[in-house]
Design a binder for these strands. Structure first.
Lengths: 152, 152
DNA sequence: TCCCGTTTGTTCGCATACAAACGGATTTTG
DNA sequence: CAAAATCCGTTTGTATGCGAACAAACGGGA
């Protein structure tokens, strides 16, 4: 029963390889879901880029952080963090100082303006998450978030 | 019973607004899931960028396409398509020609080298999708893809 | 036929992303 | 303690990704 032939069902040895359809691939779907989310974000909060907002939100949540720690907590590359922090510093939303105990570190913290701005945006930010998930009902939303977390 | 106080459960009138935790937001989770996928991709197919592969795969699937059509089918901005096509043309994986009937259009098609390359990568590409979904069991994978599609 | 709105492709500018390489600082280890 | 391994931040280079502004070309209706 192990003849390498005539096994039309299941995964026969010479089964035609499933065709590769871009629209069926997780990666493509993830990318498009992300694109849709970013479009919703851009409409709701045009004054800050997504990563600039994420940075302010994380600093508000966790307090002053080194650039590296900030990168880990926001899932940003060190090189990317630098650019974001540079621009936020230029717009006076964050400030940086040298760490007294570790001279390699640069500590980033919110300025009063940055704190005021991010606090004023939390309501809109919640709305963004709500709208992004809006095609799903409550049960599906919970399931989706659960599966997303499990996949990371 | 409508005193604006002492209502720890439910959503009281002055309910403390749900704190904004970055790690709880769909956008952040989508971004991280995408990052993880891109890391898996990069390990499996280092010779082409994700969008270069997506472009070749779509051309293989749909045949020659105008740049705009290619952009719509791969969910790429027109400006982004140009850069990707330029690089693929430089590496001789695609070629372009002028449309006879519509002089605005640029038709993009696979070269023999591009076709051979993309066909040789389909197996690895399938493996990438499999690995990306591997933290989920079969039922969860189906559910996840279903919810992702519903959200787009 | 001529005008107008749309489509297509291009260019510019800005903001992620990440790999790789580097110098300086700190920590681990032998 | 000194060497080795790590960590932190920076810089460079390449590749998306998108908004905005344009020019050329198309299509339909007045």
């Amino acid at each position: 029963m192990d003849k390498p032939e005539a096994e039309p069902e299941a995964e026969g040895p010479a089964a035609s390889p499933a065709p590769y359809r871009l629209d069926d691939q997780v990666g493509h779907l993830l990318r498009r879901a992300n694109q849709r989310h970013l479009a919703i974000y851009g409409r709701a909060i045009p004054e800050l880029t997504p990563m600039q907002f994420a940075t302010l939100a994380k600093l508000h949540e966790a307090g002053a952080l080194s650039q590296n720690a900030l990168g880990r907590l926001t899932a940003m590359d060190a090189a990317t963090v630098k650019g974001v922090v540079d621009r936020l510093r230029k717009s006076a939303h964050v400030q940086t100082e040298n760490d007294k105990t570790d001279r390699r570190r640069t500590i980033v913290s919110l300025t009063p303006e940055g704190r005021a701005l991010v606090e004023s945006l939390f309501a809109r930010a919640h709305e963004i998450s709500r709208e992004t998930l809006s095609p799903l009902d409550a049960t599906e939303q919970a399931m989706f978030l659960h599966l997303l977390r499990k996949m990371i």
